[in-house]
Design a binder for these strands. Structure first.
Lengths: 348, 348
DNA sequence: CCTAATATTGCATTCGAATGCAATTTATGA
DNA sequence: TCATAAATTGCATTCGAATGCAATATTAGG
């Protein structure tokens, strides 16, 4: 070692400017294109070259500029995720799963939250300029919006949404099947007097749950089931029950709620305001299988959406649409998993 | 109108390729630079020119490519948001607020969720290539990480985190003040026998809440207060209470929990497993003021974090750091707002 | 009506990485 | 050993918008 001078450590760009491939090239005494190739997996580069470039890159702390790369490759490696109700307890889990899976696949997530579903227009205006490679939307888009995606060749996957009569890829939980599981169990337990507390009328999923419930009840010979409610909130469940009880006619046997949070609100109203305790005096079922559904105070009978599978499906569908634009549209429907708790008398 | 032929609508690029400023320039018969200038607010452009270009842009459906713009301006108009526990009920609200405010300010959000706090390294590697204009971090970064931000001149704002002895901008809720409010109210109500159910030991906020509580209790002459628990989950609250009761020595007067969800778990354990009902037999307080805190089954006494103000502060701090890189670091601490409920005997 | 000052416009270059093509080097086989 | 095929490398251009500077058009002033 003696006599061999230690190579002077080059200060990694004091100027504050990020290191570029040209800097690395100069430092390694090669061309910029060589640097580019060394970082590309399958490229034709000699061992010696790769070693030299990698050393230089390492030494300077080189990190390729994703923006410049996107410009020339026409691939931003970005996808947009549109979510309308982040405050709906169900979505944080979905979002966390989605971003984690995307990260693992080397794709970054641009997040857009819509406070009103109608905001879709403005949000899409913000999405287009970034030339995202694809979009996962858990927000209500119109057929015109979907057509816009087609026109721009931007892959789109709906999450728990879809549009009747429009060909779009989507991942959904089988609402109808889930509702059937719930109702059948309630029916077998002997319940005959039902009430539905519905979600917002502009939510496809909510409407579908309501409709499916009405249909199944009708099949079982139960008609004119009252429908109350109008959103996914605790208050909706709580107030709807109070209304119901105020209307007279006594409590129903079972209440089918738009989702878990509504069911929780309903349970609280029954217990606190009317002294009715589940499952002894009343049966209440929810939908989604969010965390609080298993809290002891509620212990809901509900349908858990298989979030992991669903997000996995959404991401992999989107990625393959990105790789292979001619991929046919596909709709993947997952059955929910029944969770039985003490919020309802129930026979599986 | 008769006789005036309707101008033939130019098909907006059938080729599928997005319209560029060159397309617009050609269509309007001007130079590309003119197009660029027309879209820039304060630029020197004649009325006639602007009108022509705007018409052409409109007609072709031109949308500037944000990626190309970012490359030349060295401004991506992207910020990264790092969040570690999206499933912590408190964060969805924060995230929704943050993205909405950023959107309003014309900045897009790249979302990164960390499942383990230790993932920071990998995540930062993913952040740098996009040349984000700034970062809001609600995740534990080390001093070395912070130094890296400094070196790269990337503005950073911590949200509910900070590092002792390191100069960083941050927005926090005043944990100490909040804990004091809670404890003082409990003390005035006559409680003397306390237990703390703490959060994860690697959460600065959690540790601070615990430490602040111990200190305040000591000031009030109460020492050797038992500390249980180790994370922010419902189960932590639930199991800790069971442990506590199993240990004998009877129930405490009051339980100070790391956050609302822990408090909820604790309340459930007391009621379901030990027949103790708040506020009659036991007092339990939480922290954060999440939605379920106000559900009738729990009705927590807790400290609500002023999320709107805090997110507003975080975003505006970050934006001004981006505009003015020499901006001094600043720490903004907001007092939480007391919410009193029936989970505790409490005197304000 | 002419000149000087001012406002518009276009030209040419830049940002940083990727890539087709040609030039060069290396490996192969006879 | 030499010709030829194969592997490497560099050159030059590209992606799409922004911008300094020079060229041109417009306006004002006398």
């Amino acid at each position: 070692m003696a006599g061999k001078t230690r190579p002077e450590k080059v200060v990694p760009i004091t100027s504050g400017r990020p290191v570029t491939s040209y800097d690395v090239a100069r430092h390694a005494g090669v061309s910029q294109s060589a640097v580019s190739r060394c970082l590309k997996p399958g490229a034709s580069v000699s061992k010696k070259m790769r070693a030299r470039v990698m050393a230089a890159a390492e030494e300077l702390g080189y990190e390729p500029n994703a923006i410049a790369r996107s410009l020339i490759t026409r691939r931003s490696n970005l996808i947009a995720v549109l979510i309308s109700n982040l405050t709906n307890l169900y979505y944080p889990e979905v979002l966390a799963e989605l971003t984690q899976r995307c990260s693992a696949a080397g794709v970054r997530v641009l997040l857009f939250t819509l406070s009103r579903e109608a905001e879709a227009n403005e949000v899409l205006q913000q999405v287009w300029p970034y030339r995202v490679d694809g979009v996962i939307a858990s927000a209500q888009l119109s057929p015109a919006h979907v057509a816009e995606f087609e026109k721009r060749n931007v892959p789109l996957v709906f999450y728990n949404r879809y549009l009747n009569g429009v060909s779009v890829s989507s991942v959904c939980c089988d609402q109808e099947d889930g509702v059937r599981q719930l109702i059948d169990g309630l029916y077998k337990a002997g319940h005959r007097k039902y009430v539905i507390i519905a979600g917002p009328p502009d939510s496809v999923v909510g409407v579908e749950r309501k409709t499916a419930a009405l249909e199944r009840l009708e099949e079982l010979g139960l008609e004119d089931v009252p429908v109350l409610g109008e959103d996914y909130s605790y208050e909706n469940g709580f107030n709807s029950v109070n209304e119901l009880m105020a209307a007279g006619g006594g409590p129903p046997d079972a209440v089918i709620c738009a989702n878990d949070v509504v069911a929780i609100g309903a349970l609280d109203a029954f217990r606190v305001n009317h002294g009715l305790v589940a499952p002894r005096d009343i049966s209440v079922v929810g939908f989604d299988g969010v965390g609080p559904a298993s809290w002891k105070s509620y212990d809901l009978t509900t349908i858990r959406q298989p979030v992991r599978r669903m997000t996995e499906a959404a991401v992999s569908m989107l990625l393959s649409m990105i790789e292979e634009p001619e991929m046919p549209r596909e709709k993947r429907v997952f059955s929910g998993i029944l969770r039985t708790g003490s919020s309802a008398k129930f026979v599986e």
